[in-house]
Write a protein that binds this DNA or RNA. Structure first.
Lengths: 208, 208
DNA sequence: ACATGGACTGTACGTTCGTACAGTATTTAG
DNA sequence: CTAAATACTGTACGAACGTACAGTCCATGT
């Protein structure tokens, strides 16, 4: 934007970004021809720089993981801390959608992303616990994993039910006040009555 | 099993079941040739009976939706009510995995399945409410949707992180006592301290 | 000035897939 | 018994894809 040329990145970087975008938008079945078109290069140039399509995807995985480490995905629940500029918001959105594509594809990278997300959740929780906001649980570690799975899983369901035409807009699109309030209420007020649930489970056990 | 013939179903039914199995195991990119091999027929016979691959998939969608209506997916949390016989358990497992494939594929059918699941959740909740087990919520309808999304989403994450080699075994594989206890505890004891969280949110609001 | 290497492209090959076509066996109806 | 419909198969075609190959352009170093 600042120069006369429309894009002053190197072709190598443009290819990576185009692949990132296309994989996020169309899934990993996105043809190299489309990626080449988005990047404004020829298909063999992709091969020249990255070898095979799998290697290109691996490069995207690494790149996303690198940038993902900086993000706080939980910041969705605190929108004031996310999306300083519109460009940043778009970048982050594409990265989030890419991560979700990894889950949808059941890729090995999904496990890595999940582990990282659990650690991020742990960090947020430790801070919240220090502020006296967290109730103790009988199995803290498992609660962390369950909460992480629910958080990512909810996004996956939302993504599946209403797939974003533009991966750069997913953050805005998924920003749903009503759902977030319900989720927050779910975390502050128990769904089930503890005593009644316990006696119900006891009766189930005795019946067998 | 009861007759001398290895399989007395019609070829048409065998093709549908083989497609169901392959789609669940390999995703919707499963080639017709593999489906034909599993069904023990030739590829053109599939075309003869179902026209196109999309039509075959639509048939599977309808069939799954039909059988899905009978299931109580929430019954996973009450394993005593599910899987009367091993065969049934395998059938149900394949159907569940197929439904998850629809979500992973971001197929239009996913929305239908989700709506049905919300209704099933509502039924279960109404019964639990009648038993005095459910606390009220400020937005009951949205709580229902959030809980449904979390339940399916958790399964999706688990599926992505540890994909089952055999879709007939997913139910057994996903049966995790520790995670289920943590989830139940999550429903009976709030994660966050309501008063502290409220004052924290208020301070956020005033800062802007 | 000239050689060398990297960036880049056009073309083509081999594979895999869904599908169409022609033809054969088997069952059913008159 | 015969004719027609149905069930079923072998072969082939066209499209889309990843990738290999040959060659051009341009920058850089000597």
């Amino acid at each position: 934007m600042s120069t006369a040329h429309p894009d002053d990145r190197t072709a190598r970087a443009r290819i990576r970004d185009a692949a990132l975008f296309c994989f996020a938008r169309d899934g990993f079945a996105a043809p190299l021809r489309v990626i080449a078109e988005v990047a404004g290069v020829s298909v063999p140039l992709i091969t020249h720089h990255y070898g095979t399509k799998d290697a290109l995807r691996q490069t995207c995985d690494d790149y996303v993981l690198e940038r993902y480490a900086d993000l706080k995905l939980l910041a969705i629940q605190q929108p004031s801390t996310v999306g300083a500029t519109l460009d940043d918001s778009a970048d982050i959105s594409v990265i989030m959608v890419y991560v979700m594509r990894c889950f949808l594809d059941a890729a090995p990278a999904a496990r890595t992303f999940f582990d990282h997300f659990v650690e991020q959740t742990r960090t947020v929780f430790d801070a919240a616990r220090a502020a006296g906001m967290v109730n103790p649980a009988p199995d803290e570690e498992e609660r962390l994993r369950v909460l992480a799975a629910q958080a990512i899983g909810s996004l996956l369901v939302q993504f599946a039910i209403d797939p974003p035409a533009d991966p750069r807009r997913f953050i805005d699109q998924s920003y749903n006040t009503r759902a977030m309030l319900a989720q927050l209420d779910l975390y502050t007020h128990p769904v089930l009555v503890a005593s009644a649930t316990k006696s119900y489970l006891d009766s189930l056990e005795h019946r067998q």
